[in-house]
């Protein structure tokens, strides 16, 4: 089975938070406890995202990652506010296995090229925030879904693959936190309009276990990231355990 289910943890000021369409962030709980819960649910990986790091020009999760990875033995990707090779090195030395890049590489795409060369392709993840503008145009956003870039999603997907990344995590701003199901519109559009050569992870909107099954039926090789459905207990632990 190719599909992976990744637990997503969005963090602001040391708390796990969750918004809707990347806005109206609500406190959910303690990051270490929630990471432990995801581990017990037998999720395949954990994706940790500092929701405000890029916006505030800081990154503060290295100490937290150290604590989280002490007793959790599955892959952990750290994203949000990673701006330099030095930041990536710190993340990997703090216990992260992979690093997700968005705002910094939109501003300076050469960073992506350098990062995948120095740290190896498979440790570098391009994280993309996309929003639908028209039926034929999706645009990418930075700074936690806040600032538009004028860059077309399809152009950007081609570029990050060209510059070198081991995976793409594609978040739908329109579906984020809505519990309305994955953005199939988005994934259909992307699979028709671009050639995906690396593993792709779709994030945003998952509301129950059927959403995951349906995504797998239609897009066999696409993995998914989920947050709200886990935070609000919309999926039974036993659904994950029986996989």
């Amino acid at each position: 089975m190719i599909q992976r289910i990744i637990g997503r943890i969005d963090i602001k000021n040391e708390f796990v938070i969750k918004g809707i369409n990347f806005e109206g962030l609500r406190k959910i709980g303690d990051p270490i406890e929630i990471a432990q819960k995801f581990y017990e649910y037998k999720l395949d990986e954990i994706f940790i995202y500092d929701a405000v790091a890029s916006l505030y020009g800081r990154n503060s999760l290295f100490e937290l990652i150290k604590k989280i990875t002490k007793e959790i033995f599955i892959p952990v990707c750290l994203s949000g506010g990673i701006r330099s090779l030095k930041d990536i090195e710190r993340a990997l030395l703090s216990g992260a296995d992979k690093v997700g890049l968005n705002s910094a590489i939109v501003k300076n795409p050469k960073l992506l090229k350098k990062a995948s060369k120095v740290f190896g392709l498979s440790n570098i993840v391009a994280t993309i925030e996309a929003k639908k503008k028209t039926d034929t145009y999706w645009e990418i956003y930075i700074n936690n879904g806040r600032d538009q870039t004028g860059i077309s999603l399809i152009d950007w997907i081609n570029k990050v693959q060209d510059y070198g990344c081991g995976e793409i995590i594609l978040s739908s701003i329109d579906r984020d936190g809505t519990l309305k199901g994955f953005d199939l519109d988005l994934i259909n559009f992307v699979s028709k309009r671009s050639k995906i050569n690396v593993p792709l992870i779709l994030s945003g909107g998952c509301s129950n276990y059927n959403d995951i099954i349906n995504l797998k039926k239609k897009h066999k090789s696409v993995s998914c990231a989920i947050a709200s459905a886990l935070h609000y207990n919309k999926i039974n632990k036993k659904d994950f355990l029986k996989r």
Partner: peptide, 15 residues
């Protein structure tokens, strides 16, 4: 060099 050395360190230490 620049590995996920800490992950392996944690895993060996744990057991």
């Amino acid at each position: 060099g620049l590995g996920n050395v800490f992950s392996l360190y944690n895993a060996i230490k744990y057991k």
